[in-house]
Simulated scan of single mutants.
Amino acid sequence: MKEKVICGAKAKSTGKPCQRRALKNGRCSVHGGKSTGPKDKEKHRNSLLGNKNAVKTGEYETISYDMLSDEEKELYEQVPEDTVKQVKGRYNILEIRTRRMLKLWEDEILKDKTSVETILKIEDALARQDPRALELIREMRELASGENNADGSLDKLVMIIQQHRESRLSKK
């Protein structure tokens, strides 16, 4: 007679192995035996667009232009900028991220059961945005002043950025 193959997944509470019968992959249906993942990868990818379930403070939220609301696109276009495209784009995204974080903060304040812990996390994350913005503004200012003397070559621009970053790192 064939021996019963058990799942063996360890229970968190007791530490004992699961005694349910295992499927082909060695686990029972409760512990991942039936999970094969999404069949249509493109459909799964599309279902995740706009998913905000994991957003806590918004500080590390991935933001791309095509996923911005109309209001955010308008804000993106209105942010004052005067220098290199990549730095301006990073600054614009930082402004939008800050706005989204303020919206999360406002939503949390207006809840019936306000979570002080969540509010403090968002405020801490907002406080970390200011130095990033100042750093980008300094970088834009340096690049703008360096453009007047530059011969227009990309190599010169890369060198200016590298020198700026090295000087910042040496100050720390």
Rank of each mutant, 00 (worst) to 15 (best):
Asn148Val: 14
Lys121Ser: 15
Pro17Thr: 02
Gly26Glu: 03
Leu48Gly: 08
Glu166Tyr: 07
Pro80Asp: 03
Gly33Phe: 05
His31Thr: 04
Glu147Gln: 14
Lys12Val: 08
Asp107Phe: 04
Leu104Phe: 05
Ile161Tyr: 03
Ala127Gln: 04
Met101Pro: 01
Lys10Gln: 10
Ala133Lys: 12
Cys18Trp: 01
Asn46Ala: 13
Asn51Gly: 09
Lys24Ala: 13
Ile109Trp: 05
Leu120Thr: 11
Tyr76Asn: 07
Leu104Met: 03
Lys103Gln: 10
Lys56Ala: 08
Ser153Leu: 07
Leu134Ala: 14
Glu147His: 12
Leu154Gly: 07
Leu94Arg: 01
Leu126Lys: 02
Asn46Thr: 00
Glu123Asp: 10
Leu102Arg: 13
Ser145His: 13
Glu123Pro: 04
Lys172Ala: 06
Gln19Ser: 12
Gln86Val: 09
Ile119Trp: 01
Lys16Leu: 08
Ala127Ser: 09
Val5Pro: 03
Tyr91Pro: 01
Arg20Thr: 00
Asp155Ala: 14
Glu166Cys: 01
Ala9Val: 10
Leu154Pro: 04
Val79Cys: 08
Thr114Trp: 00
Glu147Trp: 09
Arg165Lys: 10
Ile119Glu: 07
Leu102Met: 13
Ile119Ser: 03
Val30Glu: 14
Val79Glu: 06
Glu95Arg: 15
His31Met: 03
Glu123Asn: 13
Glu59Leu: 15
His44Gly: 01
Lys10Gly: 06
Ser69Pro: 12
Val30Cys: 15
His164Met: 11
Gly58Ala: 05
Glu74Pro: 08
Glu108Phe: 00
Arg168Phe: 02
Tyr76Phe: 13
Val30Ile: 07
Val158Thr: 11
Asp112Pro: 05
Ala125Asn: 05
Thr57Gln: 01
Leu169Ala: 13
Lys10Glu: 04
Gly152Val: 03
Ile93Met: 14
Ala22Asp: 00
